[in-house]
Amino acid sequence: MARIWMLGDNVNTDVIIPGRYNVTTDRAQLARYCLCEVLPEFSQQVQVGDVVMTGHNFGCGSSREHAPAALQACGVQVIIARSFARIFYRNAVNIGLPVLICEEAVVASADGQEIEVDLASGVIRNTTTGQTFQSQALDPFVARIVAAGGIIEYIRQEGTLR
């Protein structure tokens, strides 16, 4: 069972990982300071497989890939948002951190509830309330990158970027 960590709208990359702490590529360091200013308990309590849910425009602000990398390093399984900021979305896809867009699931869920997500079909089940949701289908090109597990793996498989 995975827990839902619920965040609000317009969560920017400075909130996900403050600029002061991204002078590193060390994933343990990034995980330690992930969301440290808004949810100080997050990095301590998050379990591998947990789900972050959030409102509109998640990951707005700087292009720092440290933001999705920090969430990934914390063990977050998938981020479900009403909408994502473009660069964050792209970065997450590229590093193989699953991201789903599902307005209804976010509106109908609350922090601390239990959830199951089938990444292949995009079906989300809130096991606390028993409700099921279908997330938005991916762009076909993006779907190929996600299926490969990130853009590096995608290029390795294809031999080039095409």
Binding site: S63, E65, R90, I95, I151, I152, L161
Partner: peptide
């Protein structure tokens, strides 16, 4: 346009981006 480091690493290697 701004991109993350992986896109940029890919662009350094291939000269390409999607």
């Amino acid at each position: 346009t701004g991109m993350g480091s992986t896109d940029i690493g890919v662009a350094y290697a291939t000269g390409r981006a999607w």
